[in-house]
Amino acid sequence: MALLNWTRKPSTRVSDNQLAAIVDSLNDVVMMLDNHHHIQMLNRCWETITGIPVREALNRPFSDFLHPEDIPNWSKLLQSMGPESNELIWFRLICDTGELRWCEMRIQQMNADVTSPLSATICDITPQVRNDQVTNANHRSLQSLVDRLPAMLYRARNNISWTMEYVSQGCELVTGYSAEQLLNQSQISLGSIIHPDDASYVWENVQIGLQAQTTFDLKYRLTKADGSEIIVQDTARGLYSESGMVLGIEGIILQCI
């Protein structure tokens, strides 16, 4: 209300009806809660989002419309409200059909001196949450797939230690060292566990492969964490900038049976 008064031209008079029409035209819910956190005012967008008529929601506690799992967070937020608070909270609203809508609410005191009433805006973020869920599911699925493979997928720097920028969890199965131990040579490098007699062969053949920008297949010996020696198959290729500069190497190491 104060904001609307401030922005309008002094000569322009905004009637209550116009003000209500402006608030009703918004695509976010605008809401006022009293000292018991009951709904005192709602715009039309509430009905668009929830399907619940505004008149049925008025004078009811806002928590009546929240998903039960989100009520503890809502209660905590109300307890933490202070004069300068401008809080943000995500929750699920239960629609008239029983479906859920993910929402983001911004809430604040209307007057700095008194704890009530509170004003709030609610934005429907369900599509955004659904998109995030799909992205997360794809990422999670890929990550699980990579980590479960009985092989060591890696991205390494082109140096004599083959410093690992990324290494999959399968490295523990192949080498006996965990991904954390191998990452950025934090404890050990791939170069240091390659058999000393094979180290030059590996280095030279990788450089030849990088020069030719081809995929290279190498077989060499590795010393595992328990001291045993195994033969591995390393299939990799270079990562290049547009100008052809070698940025790193990506590949997969499997134990030869």
């Binding site: 998903h67 039960p68 799992e69 699920r92 859920l100 659904r130 869920q133 799909v134 599911a137 794809n138 999670r140 699925s141 890929l142 699980s144």
Partner: peptide, 16 residues
Amino acid sequence: FEHQSAIVFDLDNRLP
């Protein structure tokens, strides 16, 4: 099950 697939699982638990 989330870790075994790329399916989006949504849990809506309203039980006390």
